[in-house]
């Protein structure tokens, strides 16, 4: 039997209403394509609606906060009149707090270890369980360790923001702490 002559038309049919097509073959288990269609919903409107709501609420909250609270502006910078204490922005106060114990360890070593440690988490944690669930019971140690990390950060920031006064000494919030933050 003579081989059927393949026409260009058979591969690229005319008038299919398609302008282009793109296919890619990859190894591995399919994540969405082969699953039951019941598990998926259209982004419009099921995802776009929450996104729009989120956008609206966030914008409204930010506008309201900006209408009622003014950003701080102190006197013009004066290099010969340092406030006591001089404080970094709040998210760096944990850092400043650590520096007050030891300049190198608190100011350089720990922050570098924090950042590298965070980056390493996915490669150190070999437990594959608990994806897609909040506080999965299958990974108690990881959750405890990370929670300790978060709490240490928050506690240091709170101490730095509310409990430090002149000469970086401990002051209670109701005492005069001098300076500003």
């Amino acid at each position: 039997m003579p081989a059927k002559k393949i026409d260009k038309q058979d591969i690229f049919p005319k008038g299919s209403g398609k302008t282009y097509g793109l296919l890619e073959l990859v190894d591995g288990e399919s994540r969405i394509a082969s699953k039951e269609p019941e598990d998926t919903v259209f982004c419009f409107p099921h995802l776009l609606t929450p996104i729009m709501m989120c956008t609206l609420v966030t914008t409204i909250v930010l506008v309201l906060v900006s209408l009622f609270f003014n950003a701080p502006l102190e006197e013009i910078a004066n290099p010969v009149r340092p406030p006591n204490p001089a404080k970094a922005p709040w998210y760096f106060l944990g850092l400043q707090e650590m520096v007050s114990y030891d300049a190198f360890v608190g100011g350089v070593l720990f922050p570098v270890l924090f950042v590298l440690g965070l980056m390493a988490i996915p490669y150190l944690d070999r437990n594959p369980l608990g994806v897609g669930v909040w506080f999965s019971k299958t990974r108690p140690i990881a959750i405890k360790l990370f929670t300790i990390f978060v709490i240490i950060n928050l506690v240091l920031i709170i101490i730095g923001t509310f409990l430090r006064g002149p000469n970086w000494a401990i002051y209670w919030p109701w005492e005069d702490q001098g300076g500003g933050h």
């Binding site: 701080p72 502006l73 102190e74 006197e75 013009i76 910078a77 004066n78 290099p79 009149r81 340092p82 406030p83 001089a86 404080k87 970094a88 922005p89 760096f92 850092l95 400043q96 520096v99 300049a103 100011g107 350089v108 500003g180």
Partner: peptide, 14 residues
């Protein structure tokens, strides 16, 4: 301002 100047002075010292 004072807030800006001294916060950055502290940061740069770190």
């Amino acid at each position: 301002d004072q807030l800006a100047f001294w916060a950055i002075t502290v940061g740069a010292t770190i």
